[in-house]
Amino acid sequence: MDATVDGMRTGSALPISEAKGTGAVSDPIFVGLLWASGIFVLVLLGLIIAELFMGGLPALQHFGLEFVWSSAWNPVTENYGALVQIYGTLFSAVIAVVVALPLSFGIAFFLTEIAPPALKRPIGVAVQLLAAVPSIIFGMWGFFVIVPLMAAYVQPPLIDTFGQLPIIGLLFQGPPLGSGMFTAGLILAVMILPFITAMFVETLESVPPMLKESAYGVGGTTYEVYKNVSVPYGRTAMVGAVMLGLGRALGETMAVTFVIGNANRLSASLFAPGATIASTIANEFPEAPIGSLKLTSLLQLGFILFVISFIVLAVSRALVRSRMD
C-alpha cells in the first residue's frame, strides 16, 4: 500500500501543495459569464416592462385609471379605453380553453393508456407538428377555410335555434359573419391543443403504474381508472397546463387578427366581431404617429397584456410546481 502511494509521488503526479491551480484564471471568467447570462435575462425583462410602462404612462395620466374600464376606442376624437380589448382577449382565450380541454384529455389518455404502440408514435408526432405550424398559417386557414364554413353552415342554424331562447340566446345574436369571437376561439383552441396535450401526456405518464394496476386489479374499468386514479393524481399539474395554454392564447396575434372580425364594440354574442389586445396593437400600430395619444394608449394596452399574462403564468407555475413538493 505504501509502495503504491510512493509510486504515485515519484511518478508524474505532483503533491497537492505543488499542483498548479489550472482553473485560477479561466474558472472565474466562466462563472462570470454564467452570472452575466442569468442577470441578462432579468435585466432584459425588467427593461421591457419599464419601457412598456413608461411608454404607456402618458395614456394613463391622460385618461386616469378609467382607461382600464372604458369601452371607447375612437381615433377620431382621441378617446381610448381598454375594456373592449381586455374583454375580447379573455373571452376568446376562455373559448379556446373550453374547446381544447376535452380534446386534450382525450388525446392524452388515448396516447398513454389505449393506443397500440404502432399508432402511438404517429399521433404523438402529429400533435407535436401541430405546435410547429406558424401562427400565420392558422390565420390564413381560419380566414379562407373556417370563416366561410362558419358563415354558411354553422352559425345560421345556431342563431336560428338558440338565438330565440332567453339568456342563452344572448350568446347567439347578430348576423352570421363567419368571423368573430367563436371562430377566433376555435383557431386558438387548435393552436394551444398541442401544448396542453403534451403536458397532460407527461403528467399521465408519471402516474405510478402500481396505482393504476391496483385499480384495474380490483375491477376498475378504463374510465374509472382514468377518473379516480390518473386525473386526481395529476390534477394540479393539469390545471397548470391549462393555464399555460391560456397564457399562450392570450398573446396570440396574427391568427386572431385574421378571424376575430376586428370591431371595437362590446357584445355578449359568440358570433359578434370583437378585438383582442394583441390584434388591436397589430392593426393600429402602423398608423400611430410618434408622441400621439394613440401610440401611448397602444403601449399601455401592451403593458396590460403583460400584466395579465404574468398573472396567468405565475398561477400556472405555482400549480405545476406544487405537485413536485
Binding site: A72, P75, G180, G261, P273
Partner: peptide, 13 residues
C-alpha cells in the same frame, strides 16, 4: 381618420 370607431360590421385586414 385612418381608423375610426366603426358603428357596425366587421373588419378585415
Amino acid at each position: 381618420a385612418t381608423s375610426v370607431q366603426w358603428p357596425a360590421g366587421s373588419g378585415a385586414k
